[in-house]
């Protein structure tokens, strides 16, 4: 029994890892949602293996809840799926994020430098009623 539990746990761990890789890669939101479905099912399976090993029954209701939650999640994502612009679903690397942030900060600095005291940030002039 113990050997079977160890092997089953290892297989489930590998399955979860593959699903996580697909969640990271997935070109669209729908790919991510079905990979998340796999992850939820693997989680249910892992809790089931634990319950089978220790013969505890108090974790069984978690299985019922998880199997419903996974369904609601993927259906909600599929319901509100929209046409994504090209490259929108890609997870950016840290370099690309840094480049984008640098561009944004430069634009902000330029906008800040172009302010003049007359139109922005000047003190109240004359009598304030």
């Amino acid at each position: 029994m113990i050997v079977a539990v160890f092997v089953a746990t290892g297989l489930l761990a590998v399955a979860a890892l593959l699903a996580v890789v697909r969640i990271e890669r997935g070109p669209s939101m729908l790919d991510r949602s079905i990979a998340f479905d796999v992850l939820t099912s693997v989680l249910v399976g892992a809790i089931a293996v634990e319950a089978a090993w220790s013969r505890r029954t108090e974790t069984i209701p978690i299985l019922v809840v998880l199997s419903l939650v996974g369904f609601v999640g993927s259906v909600a994502i599929a319901r509100f799926a929209s046409v994504e612009p090209e490259g929108e679903g890609v997870v950016r690397s840290s370099d690309e994020i840094a480049a984008g942030e640098a561009g944004r900060m430069e634009a902000l600095d330029a906008a800040e430098a172009s302010h003049d005291a007359e139109h922005h940030g000047g003190g109240a002039e004359g009598e304030v009623r």
Partner: peptide, 30 residues
């Protein structure tokens, strides 16, 4: 029998994980 079922079930779960990673388009992954 329970141990055999656990092993087989974990194997099928693994095959689902492999499929969702390796298959080329959305419908195949579904």
């Amino acid at each position: 029998v329970a141990a055999a079922c656990l092993l087989l079930g974990a194997y099928f779960s693994l095959s689902a994980g492999v499929g969702v990673l390796r298959f080329g388009n959305l419908l195949a992954r579904t």
